[in-house]
């Protein structure tokens, strides 16, 4: 499998607090990579460095390098908007815009210059189908998205992210606000999506990491402690701290 993203000696500070310490990791294409670790370990922070969402926080300082397709995404020549189009994001809490289902999906393509009604209709339908929600919403595309259930909203947000045709999908604890059945549907969806997309998912739920991911990275206090194939990491962890965490000794 080809590698799509690589982080080299990545450090990150919020003001004076160091949140990431010398992270090195390589993320393979068309697979699911899970980040696990206790709260405040830096897994979400690291996820957000991958599409530069941390840029929005003024006090953040970053050193090191993250390369995507061979280019450092923190290089000054990089177009951040284009980067975020290629590396999409799904957030912890479903955050559909307060507009119709159709307009939610069309927001991204319209942002990137698609005006044709025919083309937009096509993208909206395809994205909703890919996110396995088309059958539930096809009759109410003009209804406000905030009227949907939490699980539907999250799948809508996934559809919205897919609508701009990204290469990578970053998911920041996408199921932590959802019920078990919605969670299951999102997990099935992730497995389906990895055929065409690279998925990086932050999760609090270790069973979830085992169920869906190919590789798992364990973070602790801003450091990447262990990274490898999910099956191996959970059955024969190399580091004592990983073992302690996955056996529930702390967290």
């Amino acid at each position: 499998m080809n590698d799509i993203m690589t982080a080299k000696n990545l450090n990150l500070w919020y003001d004076k607090t160091q949140a990431l310490k010398n992270v090195n990791i390589t993320i393979p294409e068309k697979s699911i990579t899970a980040f696990i670790g206790p709260s405040g370990c830096g897994k979400s922070t690291f996820l957000k460095t991958l599409n530069r969402m941390n840029d929005l926080i003024p006090t953040v300082r970053i050193t090191g390098e993250i390369s995507y397709n061979g280019q450092n995404i923190y290089d000054s020549t990089v177009d951040v908007n284009e980067l975020r189009r290629e590396i999409g994001m799904v957030f912890q809490k479903p955050n559909p815009f307060p507009m119709s289902i159709y307009d939610n999906i069309a927001y991204g393509p319209r942002t990137h210059g698609i005006r044709s009604k025919v083309k937009l209709d096509e993208i909206v339908e395809q994205s909703l189908r890919d996110a396995a929600i088309w059958d539930e919403v096809k009759d109410r595309l003009k209804k406000n998205a905030l009227g949907m259930s939490g699980g539907q909203q999250q799948r809508l947000c996934i559809a919205r992210a897919l609508a701009v045709k990204p290469k990578i999908l970053l998911m920041d604890e996408p199921t932590s606000a959802l019920d078990p059945i919605s969670t299951l549907r999102i997990e099935e969806l992730a497995i389906e999506l990895k055929k065409s997309y690279t998925i990086v998912i932050v999760t609090h739920n270790m069973q979830q990491a085992v169920r869906i991911s190919d590789n798992t990275a364990f973070f602790l206090m801003g450091e990447l402690i262990e990274y490898g194939e999910t099956e191996k990491l959970f059955s024969q962890p190399e580091d004592k701290r990983t073992e302690d965490y996955i056996t529930g000794r702390f967290g």
Binding site: R84, E86, G88, M89, F91, N95, P96, T111, V164
Partner: peptide, 22 residues
Amino acid sequence: PQSYRDGAFGLGAGKWRVIRKV
């Protein structure tokens, strides 16, 4: 909510577009 802004930025929208449309 900040989450609306995050959502729009995450789709690659520029700042002015986020403000104007969301």
